[in-house]
Design a binder for these strands. Structure first.
Length: 573
DNA sequence: GCCGTTTTCGGCCCGACTGTTTTCAGTCG
């Protein structure tokens, strides 16, 4: 059982307890436990089997929940969850996903009208029965119908790349509104989370009206969902929703901190404020009525005895304690990246030639790149067999002679076949400057076989790095069943690096696993997997993922000068 | 249900907006 499944069961328990109207702190306890499990890089199931007591050392997991987790791992469930599922039909959880419909209202509809599914809810709303229930009215009935019909297009999380592009465009435009002093994206987009459920934009201005008017008429805005004196919620043309908050200049830092989140980070910071006799809200840090700080995030953190924490780290994974000790790392930046070691050309499924990719890399100031087209197994992309690959490399060697200001490595993205063999023979791989080994096919194989494949690749003397190790696609496909601890141990032993694939659909390694690999001393490579010149610009997303993992320049192999990078390579190259 | 330099009970983050109320509960972030 993987961590996400355990976390899901705990989250489901929390939701069902909400329906039951249970003690809110008890509900929160299950949610906190779910977050803790989801954030572990090691298999919690394995941990529980090895040493059941150790679960209790995880934050938010005590005697009771640890027992339930162990039952869950052994039997697939636990009694409380089974009882709750008996008590509430699963359709209620679907209903709770509709905006505006929470646990209280869902359970009320269940009690009053015996509604147990979205279909029944829709029928009841169409029949006008919802408006008759106490606490509901005509408007909530219409809102429910609208929410059901829009369910397909809205409420989906979008990739960070999409979120950033929308947010950036709107931030740029709102900055031009007269009277606007500061404007910034906030929320998960500012934290560069891999997906965003909605967008948050924060503005400081004396008068909110012109800002809200401008947003309401913005070409990217489809409709205004709600509007108050300081807060406006709109739906953008592609269905994603955006919150705008307008605050006074002296509160901008407090509001930015507040709306950047994460929620878990905020709760910890606030708790800390309360312990020190303060009150912290989006308007500032207060002692009684006296405002202590609020204009900038820095002064608020400072007043609480903390150094400023980069948004990418604000997930309550220990960053507050790090900050207290003055140990927040100097995170890797895009400008520090010197090389890009995963890209394709027209030889396989890229759209640009070798020369065009080299030129594009030079324009972006890179000192070195690796051309890494597909191996033969990827027939869809016209993957290269030994003959074509050697000809391709010969061409690269010829062309790279023309350039004195950039190093170009002859590379290959070589598949690890389903039977664990490499897709190309060793004598071919031996001629490469740079070999990325990857899983493309058979991702659903049992964990045992997946690990056999990965470990085989790591033991191959010519493999330099494992590319997009899990094979996951963000919010589309779960990755392979990997024993991460074993993978990293083997990679560290054999001097094989790990890639953070910067493609926003992949971002693989994820933040948690990248941090775990770094902790094992494995050099991390951040590469774009570009299939065109513009694909090289995806680097910013890979760097963001590395920042979320707390990586610094020294942790990243291709942030080093070329000579130093070469020394990190295995001696076979 | 978890947690502890105010330790084994009694806390547990805080405010805006909506709809349905007529002073507030529910939802959301």
């Amino acid at each position: 059982m993987i961590n996400a499944e355990i976390a899901e069961a705990l989250e489901e328990t929390a939701q069902l307890l909400e329906l039951q109207g249970a003690n809110s702190f008890r509900i929160r306890a299950y949610r906190n436990a779910a977050h803790t499990i989801a954030d572990q890089s090691e298999s919690v199931a394995q941990l529980a089997l090895d040493d059941p007591e150790s679960l209790r050392s995880l934050p938010g997991i005590g005697a009771d929940i640890s027992t339930k987790i162990i039952q869950l791992i052994k039997t697939g469930s636990f009694p409380l969850l089974l009882e709750l599922r008996q008590e509430f039909p699963s359709g209620l959880l679907e209903m709770m996903k509709l905006p505006g419909l929470g646990a209280k209202k869902a359970s009320l509809l269940y009690r009053e009208l015996k509604i147990t599914s979205l279909a029944e809810l829709q029928a009841a709303a169409e029949a006008g029965q919802i408006a008759q229930v106490k606490g509901f009215g005509k408007k909530s009935e219409q809102a429910i119908l609208a929410a059901i019909s829009e369910r397909e297009s809205v409420g989906q999380r979008v990739l960070i790349s999409t979120a950033r592009q929308f947010a950036q465009q709107i931030v740029d435009d709102l900055r031009k509104v007269p009277g606007v002093k500061q404007c910034s994206e906030a929320g998960s987009a500012r934290r560069w989370k891999e997906t965003c459920g909605d967008l948050d934009i924060l503005v400081s201005a004396e008068d909110a009206v012109p800002v809200m008017d401008r947003l309401a008429k913005h070409p990217l805005v489809a409709s205004v969902l709600s509007r108050g004196p300081t807060k406006q919620r709109v739906r953008l043309v592609d269905g994603i929703e955006l919150d705008l908050r307008v605050v006074p200049e002296e509160s901008f830092g407090a509001a930015l901190l507040y709306f950047t989140g994460s929620k878990e980070h905020n709760v910890e910071v606030r708790k800390r404020a309360v312990e020190q006799g303060y009150r912290l809200n989006e308007y500032g840090l207060f002692r009684g009525e006296e405002s202590i700080a609020g204009k900038t995030e820095e002064e608020i953190y400072q007043a609480l005895g903390l150094t400023w924490i980069p948004p990418e780290l604000r997930e309550n994974r220990g960053e507050i304690e790090q900050s207290e000790r003055g140990e927040i790392p100097k995170l890797i930046t895009l400008e520090e990246m010197r090389g890009d070691l995963h890209m394709h050309t027209t030889a396989t499924d890229g759209t640009a030639s070798i020369r065009e990719m080299i030129e594009a890399a030079r324009e972006r100031g890179l000192d070195y790149i690796a051309i890494t087209d597909h191996s033969q197994r990827v027939s869809m992309a016209r993957g290269l067999d030994p003959v074509r690959l050697r000809a391709h490399w010969a061409e690269i060697r010829k062309i790279r002679e023309e350039y004195t200001d950039i190093e170009v490595l002859c590379g290959i993205e070589c598949d690890i076949l389903e039977d664990a063999r490499m897709d190309l023979p060793d004598d071919v791989l031996a001629e490469a400057d740079w070999v990325i080994a990857v899983l493309h096919y058979g991702l659903k194989q049992p964990g045992e076989q997946i690990m056999k494949r990965l470990l085989n690749a790591i033991r191959n003397p010519y493999v330099c790095v494992i590319g997009h190790p899990s094979g996951r696609l963000v919010s589309r496909r779960a990755g392979a069943d990997i024993a991460w601890g074993d993978l990293f141990k083997a990679a560290a032993d054999h001097g094989v690096m790990m890639e953070i694939n910067a493609d926003p659909h992949r971002l693989d390694l994820n933040d948690v696993h990248a941090a775990a690999a770094r902790d094992m001393g494995i050099p991390i490579v951040i590469s774009t997997d570009a299939h065109s010149q513009g694909g090289l610009d995806l680097m910013v997303y890979g760097v963001a993922q590395a920042r979320r993992a707390g990586l610094t320049k020294k942790d990243v192999a291709n942030a080093q000068p070329f000579a130093k990078f070469k020394r990190l390579l295995r001696t076979s190259h």
